[in-house]
Write a protein that binds this DNA or RNA. Structure first.
Lengths: 246, 246
DNA sequence: CGGCGGACTCAGAGGAAGCTCAGAGCGTTC
DNA sequence: GAACGCTCTGAGCTTCCTCTGAGTCCGCCG
């Protein structure tokens, strides 16, 4: 079995080949960031900058999923979506859209099983949504485990957005939730504050690493209060989530 | 058993193949939205833009149901209907029609067991009507369970449009009913306001998420009044319906 | 042992998200 | 045409979240 830069086994389809995703965005920087993050997660990634080349790439790659900017230089999301479905009817689509975009049209677009994320987004958000889409499509073997993340006695239900430790419900704010999700998806591994900022906060967030410390502190208060700690500081390197035993 | 992107088991015919539906509408955007939504619900979907190609597709697909726009560029829905019945006599038809259309003609046609929806419609509406048609026709195995949705002590009879909690009847307006139906079809899962707008409100509704909050508030007043709450707000994410226990 | 930089925590400003009330518009009914 | 029910808009209010700044603590190094 192949493994990825993240250390997790590569996502594969039922026939053993890696899951394929097409990233379509006319901002090359953003496309680059997305491509990097998804490749890191074990996807086979291709990128395109406009609708026409996206369709060409789709015909060649036959992607399992597409990350698609709604505003493209040459066409709109509806047209691309229609043509994509002609090429591959069961493709999953994750739309990227500005928060203030003409939402009435967007509204209809996502009506199927597809999903969307508003800019500016965090990479964790994109990755999580994409996993959700694929899981619901029953596409990837590894994803069929279900929407639960488990580290020791800590359990996260991503669909219900519920977190429990030792069976006890823990209430989290949106940012706390995303931070913990990132930690739980990378257990027993030191994550630097820069890495955390890149993944959990929006890509246009200009803030400082101090915010990470602050939110780690929040999480500790809620997660580790009165229990054996699961979040550990590695001075000069970052943070580490691991089960109490082992 | 295969599952759909909605997470529900796929609709299948008595012989195990998925239920087949043909979508006929000359607005490609609308056809795309319908196609996506129905595919998400587990249907095998084909689309056509006019009467001639609809008949061609029908001969090939032999659909169990047809979603049929009354106003087509080359002919009208009734002519198509007649020819459809020649191709497949037991096909179920759901008409799409403008509100001010000649409703008496529709009424006559639908007397035979078919049904219709006026534009603009919500996707929940279309999906529910189609399920109703098929159930009455005794076509789908999974649909024979009956028209009841149950979450905890909350029970919805979709056919009778009756809702009870702990045996007590709860009166709901049409929009409240559809909102609750959507929630009950996705229990223990956080639904974003955008998702809710997409499914419950008409596809051309330009309004804001505020309406969802308002109707959630109505529902809570009727459903949760003086009882343990079943509708939960997940700040920054959406709403969640779950039974009181567990 | 003293100083320094990294890490932690608290308090609070500012803003975002959500709730509810009141009422206008509209279609239906009698 | 008056009365009703339903839907949606607007505004005020509350609650909660996020981030900044400042002070403190702690480990590490000279």
């Amino acid at each position: 079995m192949t493994t990825t830069r993240s250390g997790r086994p590569a996502l594969t389809r039922p026939d053993g080949t890696p899951l394929r995703v097409l990233v379509v965005d006319d901002d090359p920087d953003l496309a680059e960031v997305l491509t990097g993050a998804l490749r890191y997660e074990g996807w086979e990634v291709r990128a395109a900058g406009d609708g026409a080349s996206a369709l060409a790439a789709a015909r060649e790659l036959l992607p399992d999923a597409v990350v698609l900017d709604v505003l493209l230089p040459d066409t709109d999301g509806f047209a691309v979506l229609r043509r994509l479905h002609e090429v591959k009817p069961d493709v999953c689509v994750l739309f990227l859209t500005a928060r203030d975009a003409v939402e009435d049209r967007i509204a209809g677009i996502t009506a199927g099983g597809d999903d969307y994320v508003t800019k500016p987004f965090s990479l964790e958000e994109v990755v999580a949504r994409l996993r959700g889409l694929l899981r619901r499509a029953g596409m990837a073997r590894q994803l069929e485990e279900g929407p639960r993340l488990v580290v020791g006695d800590l359990v996260m239900d991503e669909e219900a957005r519920e977190v429990t430790r030792a069976g006890e419900l823990i209430e989290l704010s949106p940012t706390e939730f995303e931070l913990l999700r990132f930690l739980m998806r990378n257990p027993r591994r030191v994550l630097s504050k820069a890495q955390i900022l890149d993944r959990v906060w929006s890509y246009d967030f200009g803030g400082q690493a101090h915010v990470v410390e602050l939110y780690i502190s929040y999480l500790r208060k809620k997660l580790d209060a009165g229990r054996a700690p699961m979040i550990h500081t590695v001075r000069g390197a970052g943070y580490l989530l691991k089960p109490v035993l082992v």
